[in-house]
Nucleic acid binder design. Structure first.
Length: 769
DNA sequence: GTTGGTATCTGTGGA
DNA sequence: AGATACCAAC
């Protein structure tokens, strides 16, 4: 028996060694899931399977790489031949090989979200639909979810429920947009993210040349990580891979279905992108006839007791769960800390203060600390204060390197060089740098292409147009032809840097001497360096997703990279990221911030129980990232769209039993406006209210019980008013109109800065006379 | 066609 | 607040 099996507990070991037949591993947070997956693969190889017969699917490149690294440590270089990667990258690889069978070229482009939206925008415009009603994001998400649920445009058109929903939202033509969108993608030789799944399903379903059997024979063992986050397409593709039939189409019931899915229903957080928790719940039903074995990993090796129990308690508020009892093996540890702040800026400061304090007192390294938020835009205040305190940090997510404008511009040139039908790439660069091909010319090309049923690339030199425009178009095409003709004689790096220079991109950026402009030039150079690395490094790192050194292979791969995939372990930075990106990660100390109603849970989700349940699972994911210290924070007010908004603390805070919190007082009590209460309460809450009190700004001058705010529109210059915190004041004047009315008020009781500018929309003022 | 200004709109998550 | 859409003037 191999030594690595000794590192496992009983359930883990069974999950590792039960390699024949379907297996469902329900893995709570911190229960050694990755360890089970990697050892299972090592075990499978040890039992005689070839690495290339193993298909391991994850959601992020990071997870895939980590798995490979860890398998490599057990089985050596053989790990490189395992087909381990993200759904999207593995499927793209298969599609590249089989493209011709479904009418694509193997050089197909991958459209990212921006490309998709841009195409949808064009279609909405061409159909003369109102773009305010046909909001691109809404339309794209309808199309995406239709595709994720395997509903073709044709099926969409006759689906009464979908049509009714669209009529209700005043967008009856979504089905038509969907249909046109598919046609245009096809014509452009492009697949969007959903297509990478959808087209593979189509390939397996239509099964030309019995292509499915080839992959069924190849993949003897299939493993799927984060199964709770798979959508209908993904689970159906896996089902197809296991749907063994003989030449007459008769089901082969004898053959083992060696599928292992690992997941945690409590951590399902991707319903918005079509994931259905139903998949994990129905796994047993789907594969019952082949003898499903279920293993539950319930020991949490990551977090201390207060954290684990708080998480357990929290999740009981959800409906439909797989019963399990997660237990910590780590001892009770620290209680959870709560930070209450008046504003988002104060929250930023308070969190940064705590980070500095923890570093000093507990000697945590920066990389052992993370700030997790619901929305990426929340990162800014934390960045501000961390910078001020000289704490190194890294923000993940948001705009990734490959999404930066200048990087996308050069990539668009490369894309068009390889695939002239790529309409979004063409539109992006046809007049960038400026070459006198304006909007109206582009529109004409587009119309002509549609009318003659050709591509824009074909049309652009054929349509009747002014001599001036014609000249510009011909010389643009000539330039592109020079690039295209060099594809076979130059390597990817030579070609890319040649294009960067010849297109005028580099010159354009060189002329911009601002700091941002220089940054953009640096980014272009960084991209070129990346391509150089790719070309010169002759080691094949990943057989499955990077099969060769062509520019096409490079482009295919970077289309699926995100910021998260960059190597970051080497440096010592505090991590700032969304809760979604934090899934699968762990930190000694975690700050979950912005715990306010309408933010976390998101305003988008609070209308339905299912919506709130998903947010709760997200919060569950957030708090279970913490090993030793967990700090939760919220602000009473924060800026949104340049306006101050007030929100209640998150309902999730009330769902954590007070026993697990630093102060013995119940959260509910702490939440209530409590400044009128005795000193002791405020003092126990982490934060420097004392300082605030001295400035009067943190205390109430008026007893809230006796305070009855007047309607703000009634407040006029010259009036005497009462303010909750500042006391009595006189309105000197009012400027602005309607929602933007601002009063200048003189408060005699305020010593250091008695004259305040107060936004009437939010102010609570009581008119005295 | 290009430039530069002003009005309008945006409300999450990510491969 | 920040991005984008729109419009008038060159």
């Amino acid at each position: 028996m191999s030594s690595y099996l000794d590192e496992l507990n009983d359930v883990q070991r069974q999950a590792v060694t039960t390699i024949d037949g379907p297996v469902l591993v329900v893995a709570g947070p911190g229960s050694g899931k990755t360890r089970v997956l990697t050892y299972r693969i090592a075990y499978i190889i040890e039992q005689g399977a070839k690495p290339y017969q193993i298909l391991a699917l994850t959601f992020t490149n990071k997870a895939a790489r980590e798995m490979k690294d860890r398998i490599g440590k057990v089985v050596g270089d053989k790990a490189n031949n395992i087909w381990a990667g993200t759904f999207h990258s593995i499927f793209a690889r298969i599609l590249r090989v089989e493209a011709s069978k479904i009418g694509y070229d193997s050089n197909f482009t991958i459209y990212d979200t921006e490309d998709s939206k841009s195409l949808i925008k064009s279609i909405i415009k061409e159909m003369n639909l109102d773009s305010t009603v046909y909001n691109v994001n809404a339309v794209r998400s309808r199309i995406s979810s239709a595709k994720s649920n395997i509903i073709t445009p044709k099926a969409y058109k006759v689906d009464e429920e979908l049509r009714m929903q669209d009529r209700m939202s005043k967008r009856p033509y979504i089905a038509d947009i969907y249909e046109k969108y598919m046609v245009r993608c096809k014509k452009a030789g492009a697949m969007d993210f959903d297509d990478l799944l959808y087209q593979l399903y189509r390939l397996f379903y239509q099964n030309p040349d019995n292509v499915l059997a080839k992959y069924q024979e190849k993949f003897k063992y299939i493993l799927v990580d984060e199964y709770q986050d798979t959508n209908v397409l993904q689970s159906q593709i896996i089902k197809k891979l296991l749907d063994y039939r003989d030449e007459n189409g008769v089901l082969d019931k004898q053959r083992q279905r060696n599928i292992c899915v690992v997941g945690d229903d409590a951590q399902s957080i991707y319903a918005f992108r079509g994931a259905t928790i139903e998949n994990i719940l129905s796994f047993e039903r789907d594969y019952r006839q082949f003898g499903v074995e279920i293993f539950k990993l319930e020991l949490n090796y990551r977090s201390t007791e207060h954290i684990v129990q708080a998480a357990n308690e929290l999740i009981t508020h959800n409906d439909h769960q797989i019963q399990k009892s997660i237990q910590s093996i780590k001892g009770s540890g620290q209680k959870i800390r709560l930070i209450r702040a008046m504003t988002d800026a104060e929250e930023g400061k308070r969190v940064a203060d705590n980070i500095v304090e923890q570093k000093n007192r507990l000697h945590f390294r920066n990389k052992e600390i993370a700030i997790l938020y619901r929305t990426n835009s929340q990162s800014r205040v934390f960045e501000e204060y961390l910078r001020r305190y000289n704490v190194p940090y890294r923000v993940y997510g948001g705009l990734s390197f490959y999404q930066r404008k200048e990087v996308k511009d050069l990539i668009a040139y490369l894309r068009l060089t390889l695939n002239q039908n790529d309409e979004e790439a063409l539109r992006r660069i046809i007049n960038y740098p400026k070459r006198a091909i304006g909007k109206s010319t582009v529109d004409k090309i587009s119309e002509h292409a549609a009318a003659t049923n050709t591509t824009m690339w074909e049309s652009m030199t054929q349509l009747p147009i002014s001599a001036r425009a014609k000249n510009a178009l011909v010389s643009f095409k000539k330039m592109m032809m020079v690039f295209i003709n060099r594809v076979d004689t130059m390597n990817a790096y030579e070609l890319a840097s040649y294009i960067a220079r010849q297109s005028g991109l580099i010159d354009l950026l060189k002329r911009d001497t601002t700091v941002e402009g220089m940054g953009r030039l640096e980014n272009i150079n960084a991209l070129l360096d990346g391509i150089k690395d790719f070309v010169e490094n002759d080691e094949i790192i990943d057989e499955a997703t990077m099969p060769d050194k062509s520019l096409a292979s490079y482009l295919q791969n970077i289309a699926l990279l995100t910021d998260l995939d960059k190597d970051t372990n080497s440096d010592d930075y505090v991590t700032l990221m969304s809760v979604h990106s934090a899934k699968g990660l762990e930190f000694k100390s975690v700050f979950v911030v912005g715990l306010e109603e309408k933010l976390f849970p998101s305003f988008m989700s609070i209308e339905t129980k299912e919506g709130v349940d998903e947010e709760r699972r997200l919060f569950y994911v957030a708090i279970t990232r913490a090993e030793q210290m967990l700090t939760l924070s919220f602000a009473n007010s924060r800026y949104k769209f340049g306006q101050m908004r007030y929100e209640e603390p998150s309902r999730f805070l009330m769902e954590i039993p007070p026993a697990h919190l630093e102060s013995s007082q119940s959260i509910r009590k702490r939440m209530a406006p409590n400044m009128d209460e005795p000193e002791s309460r405020g003092a126990k809450i982490v934060g420097n209210f004392k300082k605030k009190r001295r400035n009067v700004t943190g205390n109430f001058a008026i007893d809230p019980k006796n305070f009855k705010p007047s309607i703000s529109s009634e407040i006029q210059a010259g009036m005497k008013v009462l303010h909750m915190r500042f006391g009595e004041g006189k309105v000197l004047n009012i400027d602005g109109a309607k929602d933007n009315r601002v009063a200048t008020i003189f408060f005699k009781a305020v010593e250091d800065d008695p004259q305040k500018r107060i936004m009437l929309k939010f102010a609570k003022l009581q008119i005295v006379q």
